[in-house]
Design a protein around this nucleic acid. Structure first.
Lengths: 231, 231
DNA sequence: CACTCAATTTCGATC
DNA sequence: GATCGAAGTTGAGTG
């Protein structure tokens, strides 16, 4: 990654034409050849940029560019389209290059994981008197998202999905069959909890005596927020 | 603008939760306090960021962060929401600050200017035998977008708009009144050319004997591309 | 692989 | 100022 602070003007020709007048900006050249032109404000979006794949060519300024006072001209060309980014560098105030290596990448806690966590904190949504046994309750055929003790003495197995479809019902059914063999847990009810439950999944679940619970992500979060403010 | 290359891990809590494992990245702190975390690849979008308005607090690492090997902890808080970006800095490989000043900002050649340019190159779209006199033909009440010589001996004044509304018709009407006083140009016809012509504008234009021409931007560009390939 | 759809969307124009 | 829609959109998930 190369970082250049330079007085420069920038022209982009491609899906639209755009021009940046002479000013001091950050030119960020990434390892893949992509270039970002950032100002000292605004959002995360650069003033101008070229996405990879592209190639960067740096040449001494000539002709009109040189007459305008430019020292170098950077030409960034997209590999597959006619998009061109031309940076006329007038003065370089900083120039450094750094080895960063490949980034392990962003880990987003998926919505499903969030839902599971939030529902675990609010098991009373399953009905009064319910108590969480544990999240990711291990079984021979895989972990059950939530295992909950019912006030009636039995157990509730909850399958959490962002969007519940038929395979979610099948999965939960398998867990229920297995868990119901355990006299310490039996009888085990099933709950299919999701932001969105597809009609087919709802029909199949209902047919098998599995309860459907539609989760309101924002409401779940809202309660969560209130709780976290209290402590 | 502050540029820091650092080995760091990043956590974002807000509208979603996200985590970046320890790796070497660019931390970009803008004058408005916003922070961008960039890797050495990918698109123009940062791995993580905090949009202004927000505040950045830098403190020595303590507790779990310190145990994990962090030296500093940056906490970026959004001003209005509960969004938080926490950067655990383990090792600083580069740190520099630069004065950039406010950016004059991006100048986009609007679609209107593009349309005018493209139509100027393809005046035959107005009808066979038409010849461009000039773009931005100056008059006492402002420039006419396109002035064109008609094969019938008269002149055509063209008003180009991205989206033509009533005021565009009024504007063109004023030009026509003025231009028609010039015996060298008279008779002067009017053409309202736009990507989209609002029904009211079309009615008014037709009523005043002004021709409406719907422009296909892509088609105009397409022809332009073909031409530029030929030469 | 194409298509759909959300985005910590951002951004500008219009009502 | 709120709302609507496009973006040089990008990016992920699904059929």
């Amino acid at each position: 990654m190369r970082l250049v602070i330079a007085r420069c003007s920038v022209d982009y020709e491609g899906r639209l034409d755009a021009h940046l007048p002479l000013a001091t900006r950050l030119l960020l050249v990434k390892a893949d050849g992509s270039v970002l032109v950032h100002a000292d404000g605004g959002s995360y979006k650069p003033l101008n940029w070229m996405s990879p794949p592209c190639t960067l060519a740096v040449e001494p300024a000539t002709g009109p560019h040189a007459e305008a006072g430019a020292v170098e001209v950077w030409t960034v060309k997209a590999s597959k389209t006619e998009d061109r980014l031309v940076v006329a560098v007038h003065e370089v105030l900083h120039d450094s290059t750094h080895e960063l290596g490949t980034d392990p990448g962003l880990v987003k806690d998926g919505v499903e994981a969030q839902l599971q966590k939030l529902l675990a904190e609010q098991v009373e949504l399953l009905g009064e008197g319910h108590q969480l046994v544990r999240r990711e309750y291990p079984t021979a055929i895989g972990p059950v998202d939530l295992l909950v003790r019912s006030p009636r003495g039995g157990t509730v197995a909850v399958e959490v999905k962002r969007r519940a479809e038929i395979d979610g019902v099948e999965q939960l059914t398998r867990y229920l069959q297995l868990l119901n063999r355990d006299p310490l847990l039996s009888p085990v009810e099933g709950v299919l909890a999701a932001q969105e439950i597809r009609p087919q999944a709802r029909v199949l679940a209902t047919d098998r005596g599995i309860r459907c619970l539609v989760l309101d992500y924002d409401a779940l979060r809202g309660v969560d927020d209130v709780e976290s403010r209290l402590f």
